[in-house]
Amino acid sequence: MPKCPECDADVTVGVDAVKGEIVACPDCGAELEVTETSPLALALAPEAEEDWGE
């Protein structure tokens, strides 16, 4: 099971996860990005920037 790079908690990721998907750490709430699916790897997602939005 992958670990949260922020707090080292175990993070459960769905089997249908895709590269680039954002998941939240259940312990610290950090936004994490799935950087690889096989094997699963997580990294801290980038912080929001000024021009982010919809």
Binding site: V18, K19, E21, E33, V34
Partner: peptide, 13 residues
């Protein structure tokens, strides 16, 4: 074309 796969992108895919 995306930056990260949010819920919306996943639903579209």
């Amino acid at each position: 074309l995306l930056s990260r796969v949010r819920v919306e992108e996943k639903l579209l895919l």
